[in-house]
Simulated assay, not measured.
Amino acid sequence: MMGECGTWRLCTVGHAALDHCFAIDTFPAQPTKTPANAYRALSGGMAANASIAAARLGAQVRLHGAIGDDEAGAFLLRRLQACGVDCRQLQRVPGAASSVSAVVIDAQGERQIFNHRGDALLRAAPLDVSVLSGCDVLMADPRWMPGALAALGWARRAGVPSLLDGDLSPGEDLQALAAQADWAVFSEAGLAAFAPRRTLADGLAAALRAGAHLAAVTLGAQGVRWMRPGGPLRSLPAFAVQAVDTNGAGDVFHAALAMAMARALPDEEAMRFACAAAALKCLRAGGVAEGPDYAEVECFLAARSLVAA
Score class of each variant (00 low, 15 high):
60 Q>P: 01
254 H>M: 03
34 T>K: 10
136 D>H: 14
164 L>M: 05
284 R>M: 01
294 Y>A: 13
228 R>C: 15
173 D>T: 13
72 A>P: 00
102 A>V: 14
88 R>V: 14
248 G>K: 04
64 H>Q: 09
292 P>L: 02
134 G>D: 09
123 R>N: 04
167 D>N: 07
214 L>N: 10
279 A>Q: 02
76 L>H: 00
82 A>V: 13
247 N>F: 07
28 P>D: 07
2 M>C: 15
130 S>T: 15
182 D>H: 13
278 A>M: 02
111 R>L: 03
98 S>F: 00
176 A>K: 07
90 L>I: 03
41 A>D: 10
301 L>H: 09
209 R>L: 14
257 L>S: 00
153 G>F: 08
194 F>W: 04
213 H>Y: 12
58 G>S: 03
122 L>P: 10
19 D>Y: 02
286 G>H: 01
217 V>M: 11
261 M>G: 01
307 V>A: 14
173 D>K: 10
179 A>T: 08
154 W>L: 08
32 T>L: 12
280 L>P: 01
44 G>Y: 01
199 T>N: 12
188 E>T: 15
242 Q>M: 05
61 V>N: 01
309 A>W: 12
166 G>M: 05
202 D>V: 13
100 V>Y: 03
76 L>Q: 00
290 E>G: 03
172 E>R: 14
184 A>Q: 05
186 F>S: 03
307 V>F: 08
173 D>N: 13
229 P>W: 12
98 S>V: 00
171 G>R: 02
46 M>L: 11
